[in-house]
Design a protein around this nucleic acid. Structure first.
Length: 299
DNA sequence: TGGCAATACTG
DNA sequence: CAGTAT
DNA sequence: GCCA
């Protein structure tokens, strides 16, 4: 049961339909859209004709439970199915019988909060809160909120904040993240730390849960970014992931490699796709620079 | 018919 | 390493 | 699942 690629395919189709804007009124129209093939076009046609999709009616209660388990932070398809197979049907069952990681415990504890979308206004408030704390450490820090917020969405699943600092005066943001996390924790703003930041690198990151005084718990990611890598980081952390994957695929086809640090050329890989050499950096500072180097239109 | 992004953390 | 996360 |  490896549905990974089929799921990716459906996500691409959904993305393509959203981008398409207009309502789709026929099989032919659907089939023309890139990312929608025979099978999906057939399903769309069925929905157009009958108003629904029979396959969906056959989804069992078990499918819903597995889906719910898989929505817990720290639980993926594998563990979700394992829990179900062992007879668990509710979080109570799981809490009683399973040895959980600390992240999974937080994931279950705050399940309802974390499932909720975050209104754009609240993302703004959370960003301002974090930015205020950051600037109290060093007023020259630059904080940018990425993710779906930067894409203009009216609501978001989490908050992604990138922090960098112009190092031309000889100072960097090294060590800032630990201090920032400490401040936010003391303020009671951070309620959980899911992934611990990797030491004191300029690329340190934080993943956790935060809460505004009157709000519910929200997922918050903070990425420290070396000043020169900001363009690559903006691309990466603004996404969406389907966009990132398509960009990275284009890079790969040109013997290049695109990641959160930059665009590299002359990357040598084995037939399995594993890299032998890092290649050399050709663009990283701005998004436009990277898009130009890849030959894709910027905006 | 084979490939589908690239990388980091956890246990 | 498998699983999960971004 | 879709595509080259």
């Amino acid at each position: 049961m490896k549905d990974e690629w089929r799921i990716l395919s459906y996500r691409k189709a959904i993305s393509a339909i959203k981008k398409y804007k207009k309502p789709i009124t026929s099989y032919e129209e659907a089939k023309k859209i890139p990312g929608i093939g025979l099978r999906t076009a057939e399903k769309i046609a069925e929905i157009i004709d009958t108003g629904n999709l029979k396959r969906i009616d056959s989804f069992s209660e078990g499918d819903d439970i597995i889906k719910k388990f898989g929505n817990v932070y720290g639980v993926g398809p594998s563990i979700a199915m394992k829990w179900y197979a062992k007879g668990h049907r509710t979080f109570e069952d799981v809490l009683k019988d399973e040895k959980l990681t600390r992240n999974q415990i937080s994931g279950i504890l705050y399940y309802d909060d974390l499932q909720k979308r975050i209104p754009r206004d609240e993302v703004t408030k959370i960003s301002e809160w974090v930015t205020r704390a950051a600037l109290s450490i060093d007023p020259k820090l630059e904080c940018i909120t990425g993710g779906s917020y930067r894409r203009g969405n009216p609501d978001c699943g989490d908050v992604d904040i990138m922090i960098t600092r112009n190092d031309s005066d000889g100072t960097t943001h090294l060590g800032v993240l630990s201090r920032l996390v400490e401040i936010l924790r003391d303020q009671g703003f951070l309620t959980h730390e899911l992934v611990q930041h990797n030491g004191e690198s300029l690329s340190a990151k934080f993943m956790g849960i935060c809460k505004l005084p009157e709000g519910v718990h929200r997922r918050l990611d903070i990425f420290m970014v070396p000043y020169n890598e900001m363009g690559a980081a903006l691309l990466s952390y603004t996404g969406n992931d389907i966009f990132n994957r398509s960009m990275r695929l284009m890079a790969r086809k040109k013997k290049m490699c695109l990641n959160q640090h930059g665009l590299f050329m002359n990357v040598s890989r084995g037939r399995d796709g594993i890299k032998y050499s890092e290649g050399k950096i050709i663009a990283q500072k701005t998004e436009k620079e990277i898009c130009d180097a890849l030959g894709v239109p910027w905006r």
